[in-house]
């Protein structure tokens, strides 16, 4: 009982944007250092590890492709939690978090698509195949783009927050259905399976850099997200101050 109320207090402590700014200012340098360290180690292993006997050097694309694909999905999860926070708890930072995550998510989805395509050309002989996984990622990218477009079109931040939260959740419920239907469609049209790495039976030689790079990308996202949230809070402050100054100027008359 007291434990939960303490957590709730912690959580609502974070709801004060000023306190969030102070806290994130202290956290951010450490997180950036951790990210740089993880990237250094991860890239070292990614470059020095042995190539696959079958895929050769192209297996190294996996070390940037898989982490960005993982991030693309995780960021949508973060946005969905934030959307719940906006709609259910009306947490004032939740919509800041959702809005700051959108461009980052779109960028990593795009990166996953580009690197996947660069991997597919030597492996499958085509830049793009209508494989179930690629197609679902393409749809995910479209959903990110739609959300960004909606956010750019709406001017009032409070209204934009509520509406995009609804849309994020609508998309979140639909993602499994889209995934399932694309799988169905793929087996209908493409009975031949494409070359793919054999499930979870990945050798430790590949797993080590993959996990390190995944950790590095995840830390990178949290750094970027924190910084983008800070920027978003400052942007809203500027907007409020501008409105205040305009109002006081209007009240004091043109002479003021």
């Amino acid at each position: 009982m007291s434990d939960t109320s303490l957590t709730i207090r912690r959580f609502s402590d974070l709801a004060n944007p000023s306190r969030f700014l102070a806290l994130s200012a202290r956290l951010l340098p450490w997180l950036c250092c951790l990210t740089a360290l993880l990237f250094a180690v991860g890239l070292f292993f990614a470059v020095t590890s042995a190539g696959d006997y079958q895929q050769g050097e192209t297996v190294r694309i996996m070390y940037v492709h898989v982490p960005s694909a993982w991030l693309a999905m995780m960021i949508y999860g973060v946005m969905s939690v934030s959307a719940l926070g906006t709609l259910v708890w009306r947490h004032p930072l939740a919509d800041v978090a959702a809005r700051a995550a959108m461009p980052i998510g779109a960028a990593f989805t795009g990166l996953a698509l580009v690197t996947g395509s660069l991997w597919g050309k030597p492996m499958w002989g085509a830049w793009w195949v209508w494989d179930a996984r690629l197609t679902s990622f393409f749809i995910l990218f479209l959903m990110y783009a739609g959300l960004i477009a909606l956010n750019r079109a709406l001017e009032d931040p409070a209204r934009a927050a509520r509406l995009s939260a609804i849309l994020i959740l609508l998309g979140f419920v639909n993602i499994p259905i889209i995934k399932f239907s694309v799988d169905w469609w793929n087996t209908l049209h493409q009975p031949a399976s494409v070359l793919r790495l054999g499930g979870s039976a990945i050798d430790a030689e590949f797993l080590r850099p993959l996990l390190l790079m995944a950790a590095a990308f995840t830390c990178l996202f949290f750094c970027l997200h924190l910084a983008a949230m800070r920027n978003e809070i400052l942007r809203r402050r500027v907007a409020v101050l501008r409105r205040q100054s305009a109002r006081s100027a209007a009240l004091n008359g043109p002479a003021a």
Partner: peptide
């Protein structure tokens, strides 16, 4: 907005 959701 609707097209991705209408794919299924």
């Amino acid at each position: 907005l609707v097209l991705p959701l209408a794919i299924p």
